[in-house]
């Protein structure tokens, strides 16, 4: 309780300081909208549902792209860990492309897919796929080989070994890789949405972009807050349970 209180006081102080500076009118409300006006914008956007509509479009892109990234990243990571040929080819490609911020794919994606959802998905996939792949590969490669040997003596082989031994044994790496993949996907999607307008859907990034166009800084900051909130929620809902599980099972090292 004490900790919650401390955090609450801290953020309240920031809000008060912000409100104070805004009210002193040394900065124009264009440069620094007051927190109250941001809250007012958020309230309006919630009431007319425009915020939910934009968040829905963004999350749909993110979740779908991320899921495809996982769907390909996990098995490819297993392959690159297992076969030297895959490691020297796909593995090397992944290592290279992982260093490329996936926003760099936007020009090509627009050329290839046009102003469609596919272009957005492509950027998200490129953001998450490679880090998931590399984390999977690292996890499998650093797993103590004695686990597989022990499993073999108990009659495990083939697919059973992959699913019941190798994957769970690499879980600490997988979770951190998936988390990193999520973060990359989220960042690249925001960048892409601010950067290009896609006519098939109006996401949070575009909402932020139009806030800028309309000089509505309360909208810009409001959307920024929502983006932070979604990031935090995703962490709490999807990753914290896994991390708690790892901590409980593996102990402090997990």
């Amino acid at each position: 309780m004490n900790r919650v209180l401390r955090s609450a006081v801290f953020f309240l102080l920031i809000a008060l300081l912000w409100q104070g500076i805004a009210m002193s009118e040394r900065l124009s409300s264009y440069l620094l909208p007051s927190p109250l006006s941001v809250v007012r914008y958020l309230y309006g956007a919630v009431v007319d549902l425009s915020l939910f509509a934009a968040a829905w479009v963004t999350l749909k892109r993110l979740v779908l792209g991320y899921a495809i990234g996982l769907l390909f990243g996990l098995p490819l990571g297993l392959l690159t860990a297992e076969f030297r040929l895959c490691r020297d080819t796909i593995g090397l490609l992944a290592l290279g492309l992982q260093t490329l911020p996936s926003i760099c794919w936007v020009p090509l994606a627009l050329l290839w897919f046009g102003q469609t959802e596919s272009a957005m998905l492509f950027v998200v996939i490129m953001g998450s796929l490679w880090s998931v792949l590399i984390a999977t590969q690292t996890g499998v490669q650093t797993m103590p080989p004695i686990y597989v040997r022990a499993a073999r003596t108990m009659g495990s082989k083939g697919l059973h070994t992959w699913l019941k031994v190798i994957l769970p044994a690499s879980l600490p790496f997988l979770v951190s890789g998936m988390k990193q993949g999520w973060a990359f996907a989220w960042r690249s999607l925001m960048a892409a949405e601010i950067y290009v307008t896609i006519l098939t859907g109006f996401g949070l990034g575009q909402l932020l972009h139009y806030g800028r166009e309309l000089h509505a800084m309360d909208q810009v900051i409001g959307v920024m807050l929502v983006i932070v909130l979604i990031g935090l929620l995703a962490d709490r809902l999807f990753f914290s349970p896994w991390e708690r599980f790892l901590y409980r099972r593996w102990g402090a090292t997990g």
Binding site: V165, A169, G254
Partner: peptide, 12 residues
């Protein structure tokens, strides 16, 4: 059946 050293137990 093989009984390995303790490191062969599955932590997951």
């Amino acid at each position: 059946m093989v009984m390995f050293q303790e490191t062969a137990l599955f932590p997951w």
